[in-house]
Design a protein around this nucleic acid. Structure first.
Lengths: 186, 186
DNA sequence: CGCCGAGTTGAACTGAATCAAGAAACGTGG
DNA sequence: CCACGTTTCTTGATTCAGTTCAACTCGGCG
């Protein structure tokens, strides 16, 4: 889960001064449905925490449009390769619904990390969490059948199936839309 | 690559005081070939940086022995799930050759992080790096054919093919030993 | 010397992809 | 608000990459 920020509101509750610093670098932004928030080939300078709506990260591989991340309310989203490495991104970010987000720039975030070891610590914990999540996802992809991956996602993020096009879910599960359709129709 | 520690010797060169602190918590340890350094079901308290030899992380899935990580000289290895989350590990760590490592305990490492924001920062960068590596690995597994995965590994870590049993490489590539054998015999 | 695990090779099988074609849903402009 | 074109979803038939199962060889080590 990258509901990490939500799970860690206690961090901010316990540190009102830090919460204030955090507030200062955050700006509320809106994007309409279908809007491409970030494009491949550019450096991604922002991290978003979604307050309303759903977005996805995707990229192209031999003309195929592959979704590698979904984020809904309380979850974070960015072009992680670019955001971390400060280089051109292979990813796009797309709003799948009308979106309201908290926008945080990379430079502001780095300043925040530098300003207080507590933030630096928080950043490390956040990375630990998403690392563990990724290990789990890799495991699923490696070891489970298409049907099992479907069932796992259905359990973890059921709302996706109500709110997101099947083809995106299919590519996220690394199966074709046809196979997903057959699994669902069983 | 998790040759990150090596790539960042400059960090230590630039900060002799920190290098000294780091030295203090590190202990040189040896394990014989085939030794199980860490067992599933236990909490893994140590991170190892290999100075000589090769080790692997593996686990069991329905009786199948699956390798999910290799580490050779200058690379780091631990039961990452347990080391980060402080819970029982699903992983084993095995020495594939006689091994000489630098051993760092979780508690000492945390103390180090707390002792100086520079270490905390270093820890965050390290996690960023292994996160990016994992994203790449996930990509490979998701999108490449068995043969392509073989070729990618051959390029990235050719020494594995000289030093490690084929069956371990096969499970790391998520293919059967039979398939790997056929690919190699092409 | 004989054993056992590892690697190889062959044949049959299978989960999921691909290809194809029709049905349903969507959104855009009139 | 409807009509039409486009995209998405479904369903069926075929194909294919990689697995499974089985038999055989090789090499190291007691």
């Amino acid at each position: 889960m990258d509901t990490f920020f939500e799970q860690n509101t206690s961090f901010f509750l316990d540190n009102p001064k830090l919460a204030e610093d955090f507030q200062k670098i955050v700006s509320v932004t809106k994007f309409p449905k279908h809007f491409i928030i970030h494009e491949s080939g550019k450096v991604c300078d922002d991290l978003y925490i979604i307050t309303s709506g759903i977005a996805r990260v995707f990229y192209y591989r031999e003309d195929k449009n592959i979704t590698c991340h979904f984020a809904a309310e309380q979850e974070s989203i960015t072009a992680i390769d670019s955001f971390i490495q400060r280089k051109k991104s292979k990813y796009y970010i797309e709003a799948l619904e009308d979106l309201e987000v908290l926008k945080i720039s990379h430079s502001d975030l780095e300043k925040l990390f530098t300003s207080s070891p507590k933030f630096e610590h928080f950043g490390r914990l956040f990375l630990q969490q998403i690392y563990i999540d990724l290990v789990e996802r890799l495991d699923d992809l490696q070891l489970k059948t298409a049907k099992e991956r479907y069932e796992t996602l259905l359990e973890k993020k059921p709302y996706l199936f109500q709110r997101v096009a099947s083809k995106h879910i299919a590519s996220y599960l690394n199966i074709t839309p046809e196979t997903l359709s057959r699994i669902r129709g069983k």
